[in-house]
Design a protein around this nucleic acid. Structure first.
Length: 750
DNA sequence: TAAGAGTGTCTTTTT
DNA sequence: GACACTCTTA
């Protein structure tokens, strides 16, 4: 392939480099993905077997995208066989096949953050520690930081510096909690996110033969977003590449935004030390953005002290100035942004897909959503509450987890009394006690409850254990879908949710269906080798909403997300909202220089997402914790070289008819309606102000109706079950919905 | 033991 | 203003 005609000289040089270590410093928008794609294509063209290439990305989405692009260049078969994924998913896969070597079951559970926090709370209670002083989130953060630096429990307990730190912070027991936590995870056959990396390091350290095997397998190692790797990840990459030394890392120190998670810029400097023969390539030409945007971004990042040599430039047009909008309230900010999007779309004939709204915190999406909905602008939210974090989903998943790994303590606690079977807190406390005293796992006590408890209390527990054993037997024979279907039915969950005829109940029921559909799709995927329940669970533990979203997206829509999740993406027009002190930069990040610089890099990332036009906005007052607070504009606004900025001010501080200056008095969400499912695209339908529900007792099939949230539609079916009538309505915008007439507010139109 | 009311904490970002 | 957790009562 003629790479020189496809790439600029420095890009081509990076692509053609094959042997030995290399580092690509890639400025924002400099065609990094392009280079990585062609670099892999070139390796394949040179005869390297795809199985021998390991490419580690930061998100599943990035991996998927790159695989798709490589597929276009070299064809499907080769692309499919590449080892490509996040650190977490690749090494979870490897740990699964090597689990026995480090004493974990093959079907180990992956605890999510919630599981971890709950476990810490439980430990605090058992150790009789004050959970105000030892906040679970903070304790988990400390444990996580230790693991990411590969500090074992023993090292933690013995290290005088750490002890002094913890004592100075008046939290001397963190080491003990860490010890308990690690213990409990091990007994439960569970790993948290950090363990996936930590235990990989343990595996490679204690089993040189295993390390050797993977060193021979992964002859070429690539790491994307290298500036965001932590020590634990750095070491894994280094160990794997130790033999062949064919390692290529790609990164941009200016875009390092995950220090809070242990990412360490030091890794870039370490890299130069580890490989003196290192070749460095710099990609400095930005192909994405206008000159204005690139220069403005440079003027911001220049305020950071800690940064590497780099000079990003653009040959694109100058482009329009950066607009700054000032609003009186968060609601008005939403309105200004929505109006601006609407006008821009019309005057430039754009698609809503061209627009993105970025914010610092997920909570900010609310005000934006409302304004967009009022203008009928469709939008999608990336991230936020994940499908897998919903209660009903977690419940069913807990059953599945327990089936695959009965020692999974968090799953056990979640469903041992759900649906209700008369096992209360007192009984559970007794079980835990018994487990502790007899040195058994909780499951072992549960499975033999009659030996530990009087018959009357033991009976429901024994029944429960029998159920789980039966599920395990089914899961051993059947594929994930058959097993999950059986469990959902037999556990009584389906029945319980079906009996709940409220609207929320219906939506929970539908969510379970959707999960089962997901399992089905998983099992029917012809390329999937391992179709067991265990494999499925491992898969979903590492998938976030952001990864699955795009596929089911139909129709154009404005994208909304946090700046963190916008990393790596680009949009024609970008709005960065909430440019206020204590919000961006965040209140918790303004105390130290290093933290503030991370915030500034985050701002840099946000700015450089924009191709043509960038708009910044701030509000002088904002609702926080339910009450109004006044805000100052962000210091970052003043850091942009003023020649690139056009300050626009809100015309009037107030708003439309019937609205108070600070909004918010109306527009309260009916609590009958479930919060809009973040999984799907929320449609912009606004009910007219005069909406009045009609009497629906004589509703007929075929009639046209209006719903305050779903818009217009017609009744396709009516059915009455045990006294309550359900209407199946085909809505024009949102498709088919099943509504209970006793709850649904419908206006009959004809 | 279950259900309901009341209270306090919280929001930084993600695998 | 949301949610998890605690307290109260049947």
């Amino acid at each position: 392939m003629d790479y020189l005609s496809l790439l600029n000289p420095s890009q081509a040089a990076a692509v053609m480099q094959i042997d030995g270590p290399c580092m690509i410093i890639a400025g924002a928008g400099s065609g990094k993905t392009r280079v990585l794609t062609y670099r892999i294509a070139n390796l394949l063209e040179q005869g390297v077997d795809p199985f021998n290439i390991l490419a580690l990305t930061f998100t599943n989405k990035a991996a998927k995208e790159m695989r798709a692009r490589i597929e276009k260049v070299v064809g499907g078969a080769a692309a499919k066989n590449l080892w490509m994924g996040t650190f977490h998913s690749i090494f979870a896969r490897i740990l699964r096949s090597e689990a026995d070597k480090i004493g974990f079951p093959r079907s180990f559970t992956i605890y999510d953050t919630q599981d971890s926090k709950t476990l810490i709370s439980q430990i605090l209670k058992e150790l009789e520690l004050d959970d105000k002083l030892y906040k679970p989130g903070m304790v988990l953060g400390r444990i996580s930081a230790a693991k990411n630096k590969l500090i074992s429990v023993q090292q933690y307990l013995n290290d005088p510096v750490i002890r002094q730190d913890d004592e100075a912070a008046l939290r001397p027991k963190i080491g003990v909690i860490y010890q308990q936590y690690a213990n409990r995870c091990f007994k439960a056959g569970a790993m948290d996110f950090d363990d996936l990396l930590y235990q990989t390091n343990v595996l490679f350290k204690d089993h040189p033969d295993v390390l050797n095997k993977y060193q021979n397998l992964f002859r070429f190692v690539m790491v994307d977003e290298y500036q965001d790797t932590n020590y634990s990840q750095y070491l894994i990459a280094r160990k794997l590449a130790a033999k062949e030394r064919n390692i290529c890392v790609v990164g941009d120190d200016a875009q390092s935004i995950y220090a809070f998670r242990g990412a360490d810029i030091q890794n870039i400097l370490n890299f130069e030390k580890d490989y003196p023969e290192l070749q460095v390539f710099k990609l400095e030409q930005n192909y994405r953005s206008t000159k204005t945007i690139v220069k403005a971004a440079n003027s911001v990042i220049k305020n950071n002290q800690a940064q590497l040599r780099k000079d990003v430039f653009s040959d694109n047009e100058e482009g329009p100035l950066i607009e700054v909008l000032k609003a009186a309230s968060d609601n008005e900010e939403g309105k200004l942004v929505a109006n601006s999007i609407f006008e821009d779309k019309m005057s430039h004939h754009l698609s809503y897909d061209d627009f993105a709204i970025l914010y610092r915190t997920n909570a900010q999406s609310r005000a934006m959503e409302e304004s967009l909905r009022k203008l009928n602008i469709r939008y999608k939210i990336v991230g936020g509450l994940s499908f897998y974090q919903r209660k009903e989903i977690k419940d069913l998943v807990a059953y599945l987890r327990l089936t695959v790994n009965p020692n999974d303590e968090q799953a056990l606690r979640r469903v041992i009394n759900y649906p209700k079977r008369g096992i209360g807190d007192t009984t559970i406390a007794k079980l835990i006690n018994a487990a502790e005293e007899s040195n058994h796992t909780i499951w072992e006590v549960v499975a033999n409850a009659d030996q530990f408890l009087p018959t009357r209390t033991a009976n429901p527990i024994v029944d429960f254990a029998e159920k789980i054993k039966a599920y395990t037997a089914v899961a051993a024979k059947e594929d994930a879908f058959e097993a999950a279907k059986f469990i959902a039915k037999n556990s009584g969950m389906i029945e319980e949710l079906y009996a709940d005829k409220s609207i929320e109940g219906l939506s929970r029921y539908e969510n379970i269906q959707e999960l089962l559909n997901g399992v089905k799709a998983y099992t029917e995927d012809p390329e999937r080798e391992d179709k067991t329940l265990g494999a499925f669970l491992q898969d979903i533990a590492l998938v976030t909403d952001a990864d699955t979203k795009d596929a089911q997206q139909e129709g154009e829509a404005v994208t909304m997300m946090t700046i963190h999740s916008a990393k790596g993406l680009e949009f024609r027009n970008v709005y960065i909202v909430g440019m206020e002190e204590n919000l961006f930069p965040s209140q918790m990040m303004i105390t130290s220089r290093a933290d503030l610089e991370e915030e500034r890099r985050l701002f840099y990332v946000a700015i450089t997402r924009a191709e043509k036009k960038l708009t910044l906005s701030y509000a002088t007052s904002r609702y926080q914790w339910g009450n109004l607070r006044s805000c100052e504009k962000s210091r970052f606004l003043d850091e942009i070289d003023p020649q690139f900025v056009d300050f626009k001010f809100a015309a009037t501080p107030s708003a439309g008819p019937g609205e108070s200056p600070f909004g918010h008095v109306f527009e309260r969400r009916s609590n009958l309606l479930p919060t809009p499912a973040r999984k799907t695209v929320a449609k912009g339908y606004t009910p007219p102000a005069d909406f009045q529900p009609s009497d629906t007792s004589n509703l007929q099939t075929g009639q046209r109706v209006e719903h305050p949230k779903f818009g217009f539609g017609h009744v396709t079916k009516l059915e009455t079950v045990s006294g309550s009538t359900k209407a199946i309505i085909e809505f024009e915008e949102v498709g088919e919905k099943t509504l209970l007439l006793s709850f649904a507010k419908l206006r009959v139109l004809g």
